[in-house]
Structures are given as C-alpha cells and as structure tokens.
C-alpha cells in the first residue's frame, strides 16, 4: 500500500545549526503514529518542516506519493495551543470555519455548507453548545477541542497534531483519543507529537523516536523498547532506569 507520508532525508537548520538531521521515514496509511523524543529533540520542528512552515535545508516531503505542495488539501494541522492569542475577538465556530479557508480559496466568502460542516465538526468534539462562545472564555481543554474541530473541518486524509494533550483535562484527553481512533477507522493517518511516555503504548500503533535524528520508526511493540528509549533519551531520563520496565509493560 502507498505510504501516506514519505519524508526523505529531511534536514532543518536554524541559524546554520542543524536541529534535525537527515530524517527519513514512510508513514503507512491508516495508523496512529506517535512522534516521541525529549524536549528540544526536534519533534515540533519535524512537523513544521513537513508542512513547509520552516524551510528545509535538504530533503523532501511527499503525501500519498506526490510532493507536499500539490497535496496540501489532504493535510490537516493542529498547532500547539499556546501558539495563538486567545483574546482575539472571535468565537469557537468562527475558528473552526478557518479550517475551510483552504478549500474555499482566496477572495471568496464561505458558503453555508461550510458553516454547517464546521458546526458538525464542533459536535464531533463535543463543543456544539459552545459554538458562539468567545474563545477567551473557553478552558484550555475546550480551546484544544476547538483546534481539533478546525483540523476536522479541513477534511484531510493525513493529520499532524502538535502536543494536543498538553494542559488538557482527563475528559478532553479521552475525547481526543476517541476522535483519533475514529479518524483511524476512516482510514486516515494521524501523526501526533507526544511526550508522555506512559501512554505511548496505549495510544499509538506506530512510533517515531527522534532526538535530532531518527532513532527508530515502526510498530509500537517492535520499536518502543528499552534499548531504543535509552538511545533516544540517553542520560537525560534517569527515571527511565527505574520505571522503564514497568512503563514498557503497560
């Protein structure tokens, strides 16, 4: 089967210093894939590079076998929640409708079908009651759900999510996981930057371990091993030595 995402030899440098070096992987379609690594390992950078938000020093990205730039409509994106100013004057539904902008195109107004779709996406994340609520008045978990609904409104085949579980309540975390599984059952591919090692086995089918370069990529049960985690985290995670085995069983 054709891979959903093919990243070839990706190197990204900020101010001449490489922050991600020669990463290559082929993400199979219809999987939930965790991108795991320590802080500063380049997890977010990998996503941004894949989406063309930061320039690549080298390498290429293909979505379903064609260059990313021609396949943009197939890709949905959930940025980190802190990346925007939530005091912006707008309501939840309006933010979700932004997911339709790419499909509608420049200079054109949204159609009522776009609005209906945005509304149904809000429903899917359990936020229909908050459609006209000011975004500044939403809790952290609710804001995250709005961002997820916006990505759903993009109606994509491949989703990239940057730390969707950070700062959300248990109920939202559960709702997000349910949503990810639903996307998967529809044959969609989801790549999620994640840093809670304890839930990796539970949440993800496949794992990409990175620390400035690719450490390992493959099905979770094969790749998420003590050895690989040691290689990824090195001396940085002493805890791993104590709780590592327990972690890997869970």
């Amino acid at each position: 089967m054709q891979p959903a995402v093919t990243v070839e030899n990706m190197t990204i440098a900020y101010h001449k210093k490489p922050v991600l070096r020669e990463v290559s992987f082929q993400a199979p379609a219809g999987k939930l894939i965790g991108i795991v690594g320590p802080n500063g390992a380049g997890k977010s950078t990998l996503i941004k590079g894949t989406l063309g938000l930061v320039p690549l020093a080298s390498g290429s990205v293909e979505i379903y076998g064609k260059p990313y730039l021609t396949q943009r409509k197939l890709v949905g994106y959930v940025p980190q929640r802190e990346s925007v100013d939530w005091d912006f004057p707008t309501h939840a539904l309006d933010v979700v409708m932004m997911g339709r902008y790419g499909h509608v195109g420049m200079f054109k107004w949204l159609r009522s079908s776009d609005k209906e779709m945005a509304m149904s996406c809000l429903e899917k994340v359990g936020m229909a009651d908050y459609a006209h609520r000011q975004i500044s008045q939403l809790s952290g978990g609710q804001q995250q759900r709005v961002f997820l609904a916006r990505a759903l409104a993009q109606d994509a085949k491949v989703y990239f999510m940057d730390e969707p579980f950070v700062g959300v309540d248990a109920a939202t975390e559960k709702a997000i996981i349910a949503l990810l599984n639903e996307l998967k059952s529809q044959g969609k591919t989801v790549l999620v930057v994640h840093h809670d090692l304890q839930t990796v086995k539970e949440y993800f089918d496949w794992v990409l371990l990175i620390n400035l370069r690719k450490i390992a990529f493959g099905p979770t049960e094969e790749v998420f091993t003590y050895d690989n985690l040691q290689k990824t985290y090195g001396g940085r995670l002493h805890v791993l030595n104590d709780m590592g085995p327990a972690l890997l069983q869970g």
Binding site: L53, Y101, M106, Q154
Partner: peptide
Amino acid sequence: FKELKLLCFDPQFGRGIGL
C-alpha cells in the same frame, strides 16, 4: 477579510493550508 483575519489570529495555520 477572512485571509486577513487568519493572518492576525493564526498565520502559521494559514501557511499550513497554503494561503
């Protein structure tokens, strides 16, 4: 208007969807 709104609220997402 909608593009300018996105530019003000979340330009990174705007770039992501190809605007």
